[in-house]
Design a protein around this nucleic acid. Structure first.
Lengths: 135, 135
DNA sequence: TTAAGTGTATTAGGTGATATAATACACTTA
DNA sequence: TAAGTGTATTATATCACCTAATACACTTAA
């Protein structure tokens, strides 16, 4: 239940998943949602590691994946920066959304649920929607 | 890429995920979709382990979870049987679907995508639907 | 009673992913 | 030159996962 604000980024780290994966997911999300602006400087590897009280190598691993995603650029000796290209962010969102959706549809198919069933569930959830997440 | 038919159950096992998880998922799916009938006998722990060429303990782990799901009943000395209760299967489907949907909606939210965006993606995918999964 | 087939439990060991620790190197900027 | 960057390496520790071997309790049928 660690809650940390580092620059314009916000992290909540626990031990339910690999640390590098949580950093990766939350940094991806922040960039995709524009919570950190295009071209902005990311926290340095060492700084983020110190703030989150984890090993620099672990942060490194997440940062390398961010660059592979096209969401950041690294400048040796200077630091890691959010990409300045809106197209890169857009295509990343599209690609990841497609992956999520495919995986989700497979899960639904494995339960024998059709698209119409899903819509019904979601509408029900929307109607009952008053903060009640009871599972 | 192992493909195995064991009784009325079909398994495809690889090393991309934990073995017990694949067995669990595929058995759940078979029961949820009625590919194996209510009350039917499941393959014995030893038989399934032998067919899939994996350790009996690994099958055991999956079978224990199936019972916790309410999808199977074990009769000591006799074997493992699919539950005879359609209600158990139905409530399992509902619960798991809810979990999947919640998780999916969180993923979409992390990308800053609203429900309308998702519908658009899905409709696009449906229109372009001719086996083309290009990722 | 016996034998074969069930689920279950225990103990031991191996492998790989994850994370830490310590250290060093190359590059950039002030 | 010094401080701050990303990067690489080596060693170690822990845990999840899987295997292996063995034993026990129960049920059914011969």
């Amino acid at each position: 239940m660690e809650e940390q604000q580092v620059g314009s980024l916000h992290f909540h780290i626990d031990f339910s998943q690999p640390l590098y994966e949580q950093i990766l997911d939350q940094a991806r999300s922040a960039i995709a949602k524009g919570e950190i602006a295009l071209g902005d400087k990311m926290p340095s590897v060492r700084e983020l590691a110190q703030e989150l009280r984890i090993n620099p190598n672990t942060v490194m691993r997440a940062y390398q994946e961010l660059e592979r995603d096209g969401l950041t650029e690294k400048r040796r000796g200077q630091g890691t920066y959010v990409t300045s290209s809106p197209e890169h962010v857009a295509s990343f969102r599209t690609a990841l959304a497609a992956r999520y959706i495919d995986s989700f549809m497979e899960q639904m198919e494995s339960l024998g649920l059709a698209w119409e069933d899903i819509e019904t569930y979601i509408r029900q959830k929307r109607d009952t929607e008053q903060g009640g997440s009871d599972l």
